[in-house]
């Protein structure tokens, strides 16, 4: 593995920089140098999924040229990884070796114990695209089980969609909210302090609902848990 690039995704770059910083910290701790090509912007998923394939095509082409020459592109988002891997080739812009973070750690680097420490009660929401588009399976759970101090509690009806779906949350707001309400009930039933997931978009949705309820369950991206150590423990992001 020569050159590794981080694709932060537009959402994480803009709204959740702590997640991207955590990926950098984690990979560097595992002895890997990671680059962040500054020309990256967005994979085009929102455009494609909303029916604007022509715009998505342009963004897919830029993506392919920005990441040309890297041996692996790591991203802390199951749905953006799915977009790049499964949809970009159909738009004539494939060929970039994109990995969602848990896939990269388990399949490429061959590690499940990343030396993390996170002394909290955690439940895990498997996002639809990491599950059904990428097929990451139990990899995120394997990574979480190896984290010291972490108490993993099973999320009931875990594989059920949280109702985000990009512009679905706006175009079918009532249905999206009903799905969110059921997901939040399941999260609250676990008694977890922290809800984690491999995608900030779903966490923004579920976390936004939990915040509205003043539920006290904190959404934390999987990368931030895996980056946390005893010497340098996770702390809430300052805005």
């Amino acid at each position: 593995m020569e050159r590794i690039a981080l694709f932060a995704t537009c959402l994480t770059d803009t709204l959740y920089p702590a997640t991207a910083r955590a990926v950098v910290r984690l990979l560097e701790r595992l002895g890997r140098a990671v680059e962040f090509p500054l020309d990256q912007t967005c994979c085009g998923q929102m455009h494609f999924n909303t029916g604007y394939a022509a715009h998505a095509e342009g963004l897919a082409r830029s993506f392919a040229s920005v990441f040309a020459g890297y041996d692996a592109v790591v991203t802390p988002s199951g749905s953006c990884a799915g977009m790049a891997r499964e949809v970009h080739p159909k738009l004539g812009a494939g060929g970039v070796p994109v990995y969602e973070l848990s896939e990269f750690l388990v399949d490429v680097l061959g590690v499940t114990d990343v030396g993390a420490y996170f002394p909290h009660r955690v439940t895990y929401h498997p996002t639809c695209h990491s599950l059904r588009v990428l097929g990451v399976g139990d990899k995120p759970l394997a990574l979480l089980r190896a984290v010291r101090g972490l108490e993993l509690v099973e999320l009931p009806l875990a594989e059920s969609c949280c109702g985000f779906g990009g512009t679905f949350a706006l175009k079918n707001a009532d249905t999206s909210t009903a799905m969110l309400a059921d997901k939040m009930r399941c999260v609250l039933d676990t008694g977890a302090e922290v809800l984690t997931s491999g995608d900030n978009s779903c966490l923004m949705h579920i976390g936004g609902g939990l915040s509205r309820l003043r539920a006290g369950v904190r959404p934390v991206h999987l990368a931030e848990i895996l980056a946390s150590t005893e010497e340098d423990p996770w702390a809430p992001a300052t805005r």
Binding site: A8, T12, D13, T14, L15, Y16, P17, A18, A20, R21, F36, A169, L170, A173, T177, L180, M204, H205, G207, G208, G209, S211, R212, A237, T238, R239
Partner: peptide
């Protein structure tokens, strides 16, 4: 969005 969910506060500094 904010009819039923809070939105994240953008950070001072992007990644």
């Amino acid at each position: 969005w904010t009819a039923s969910r809070d939105a994240p506060v953008p950070p001072r500094e992007s990644f």
